[in-house]
Amino acid sequence: MKKVLVTGATGFIGRHTIAPLTDAGFEVHAVTSKISVNSTDVDGKCCWHTMNLLDPIQVKNLVSTIQPTHLLHFAWYNIPGKCLVAEENFLWVQASLELLRHFREQGGERVVMAGSALEYDWNYGYCSEVLTPRNPHTTYGVCKNALQEMLKAYTEITKLSSAWGRIFNVYGPYDHPKRLVSSVICSLLRGESALCSHGNQLRDYLYVEDVANAFVALLESNVAGEINIASGKPVAVKEIVLKIAKKLGKSDLVKLGAIVASAEEPPLFAANVSHLSTEMSFIPKYDLDKGLDEAIIWWQKQLN
């Protein structure tokens, strides 16, 4: 029986992997720091485990009890506006390595961890797993990149099967309300102005269910190493904002240029997804229009 341990299972992406993992025949064990209403409405059947992943004793006991064959690791400190420079990033590198070690010692066979596009040198704009240098500009990116390097070295020594899914921009249900797509939707639904920068930045957005499905496909595959999880189709931020406004009939509330864009922001930051599409034959189910429709419907329900 395939048994998968999913960390960050009530998080933005992790929660969307439960149903496809169940459909794929996994016995799913989901970790959350606190059982709450957020875990009761996750689609898919799983066994919930409440624990603190930063406690090595709890991690050891959980892994030895479950003895999972697969590990899908999303848990991290990821609060918008804080996570990029937070000291908690270093704690999560240590905790992730402890989890990895215990997983292997208990006979684990395949691990997939969630990385970040912020590991790349964003000055290169169009990012390839093979060609683009890693030169992170944030603490978050530094720590994710360090974990990726250690995962690679560890799996080479132990012969553990592993992959690293490098996430770009994600949107959809359960997103943090301060992120771009959710923030614009919520402001417009409340009848408030959506304050934005000039919006000329080109970014790579993928709907959250597609991101989750890509991770499940990666876990099921034998693909090793780094894989960009993205659409590969950069779009101007202002195009996304204006699409949302048009769908809601509130284009007059969009205020482009109201916020000064950071001088450090690259004009283009997007993914080469040739490995995702060729090695895994992965095709997203949602285009931008359909994904935004779903996000709007979800936020309308939440605000009502």
Rank of each mutant, 00 (worst) to 15 (best):
M1N: 08
K2W: 06
K2Y: 03
V4P: 00
L5K: 03
G8D: 02
G14Y: 03
H16R: 07
P20D: 04
F26P: 05
T32Q: 04
K34C: 02
S39W: 12
V59W: 01
V59C: 08
L62G: 09
I66P: 01
P68V: 03
A75M: 10
L84M: 15
A86W: 01
A86Y: 09
E87S: 10
N89C: 15
Q94W: 04
Q94L: 14
L97V: 10
R104W: 13
E105L: 13
E109P: 10
V111N: 00
Y120V: 03
G125Q: 02
C127L: 14
S128L: 09
N135T: 04
P136Q: 05
T138D: 04
T139S: 02
E149T: 15
M150I: 14
A153H: 08
L160C: 06
R166D: 04
P173D: 09
H176C: 10
L180C: 09
V181H: 07
I185R: 04
L189A: 07
A194C: 03
G199P: 02
Q201S: 14
V211D: 04
A212P: 06
A214C: 12
L219G: 09
E220I: 00
S221K: 03
V223M: 01
A224L: 15
A224K: 15
N228Q: 15
A230Q: 01
A230H: 02
K246G: 07
K250F: 00
V254M: 01
G257D: 11
I259H: 09
S262V: 11
L276Y: 02
S277N: 06
M280V: 06
F282M: 02
K285P: 08
K285Q: 15
L288C: 12
G291I: 08
G291R: 03
A295M: 05
I297Y: 11
W298V: 06
Q300N: 08
Q302N: 11
N304R: 13
